[in-house]
Nucleic acid binder design. Structure first.
Length: 316
DNA sequence: GGCCCTCTTTAGGGCCTT
């Protein structure tokens, strides 16, 4: 079951509530960010009406016959996915059991795996064009995915992810300043009362977290102080080194998926596909390295740590 | 950019992220 925010609005929110889990229903029903989407939709033709915000991936020319077929032709701009209903399985059972055994931290911590697609590799000049995240505990409405409108910044690496300017530079695709409060609401909906969030990304310290911090700063937001940032790449390197000390095995997400014989859903270098894969890889890594939740917390960074390093580098 | 490795440490190349 896959629910897009635009579909929620189209269906009338109050009648939709009974089918949602309570937390997500609560923030959707009361969300000011949803009003933002409505205003934006209304501004397209000056009429106040709900619209479905889909972006067609059907393309003409060099790319994407393959991609379009894989993605099913269209994808919603922003959506929260009921992964539990979609997969009919508990994909992270082992980690859930381990979290449950850690009685103190498991009551406080929400682990969310994330991935970004961007207009390029430069941390300062490029922009985010797609975000996906998944609460590793699974359950209903645990997954978030959205395209992001980068404004005037051109996409020069569409050959990597297949996302082109004409797909995201559209009025119905939210800009980052509109999206941040929506993303914050999603994270809050997964958060335990008075708890902390561990955001996991592959090569996050050098890439994803720097992009997020820059975008939050640009839009006059701060990364919440109860967020911990965990880079899964050092875990992968440590694990692969322990597997084969004399030969340097690749620690890329793709190589890890091959090593663990994991199947990818969707296309590589699309945020949701990478998040679903990293969620599985992350679980395998924590098991192989015998890392407790406490161990993981000790390996986390804070946004202020990374911001300070970025500022130091900027001066240098 | 940050990290790791080595033919290193007063450095440089490769990996990983898009």
């Amino acid at each position: 079951m896959c629910i897009s925010i635009s579909q929620v609005s189209r269906l009338r929110i109050h009648s939709f509530g009974s089918s949602c889990c309570e937390r997500v229903h609560g923030w959707i029903k009361n969300s000011s960010s949803l009003k933002l989407l409505d205003v934006r939709a209304s501004s397209v033709d000056g009429k106040a009406r709900w619209i479905r915000r889909n972006v067609s991936t059907t393309t003409q020319g060099s790319r994407s016959n393959t991609k379009s077929s894989v993605l099913g032709g269209t994808v919603p701009v922003t959506r929260i996915i009921d992964e539990e209903s979609r997969t009919k399985v508990q994909p992270f059972g082992n980690l859930q059991q381990r979290l449950a055994q850690d009685k103190d931290l498991s009551k406080l911590l929400t682990v969310i795996v994330s991935d970004l697609e961007t207009t390029g590799l430069h941390r300062k000049n490029e922009r985010i064009i797609e975000i996906a995240a998944q609460d590793i505990a699974g359950g209903g409405y645990s997954t978030f995915q959205t395209l992001v409108n980068p404004g005037v910044v051109p996409i020069t690496n569409a050959h990597i992810h297949g996302i082109r300017n004409d797909m995201v530079c559209r009025p119905e695709v939210p800009r980052m300043e509109e999206l941040i409060p929506i993303f914050l609401r999603y994270v809050e909906s997964r958060q335990k009362p008075g708890g902390y969030v561990m955001l996991v990304a592959h090569n996050g310290k050098s890439f994803d977290f720097q992009f997020l911090i820059n975008e939050f700063n640009r839009c006059s937001y701060e990364i919440p102080h109860n967020w911990l940032l965990l880079d899964s790449l050092p875990l992968a390197r440590e694990n692969m080194k322990s597997v084969e000390p004399t030969v340097k095995l690749s620690s890329s997400l793709e190589a890890l998926a091959d090593y663990y014989s994991l199947t990818r859903e969707g296309d590589a270098h699309r945020a949701l596909s990478d998040v679903l894969l990293l969620s599985k890889v992350f679980q395998k890594l924590t098991i192989d390295l015998k890392l407790s939740l406490s161990d993981l917390v000790l390996r986390c960074h804070t946004a202020s740590d990374i911001s300070a390093a970025m500022a130091k580098n900027k001066k240098a």
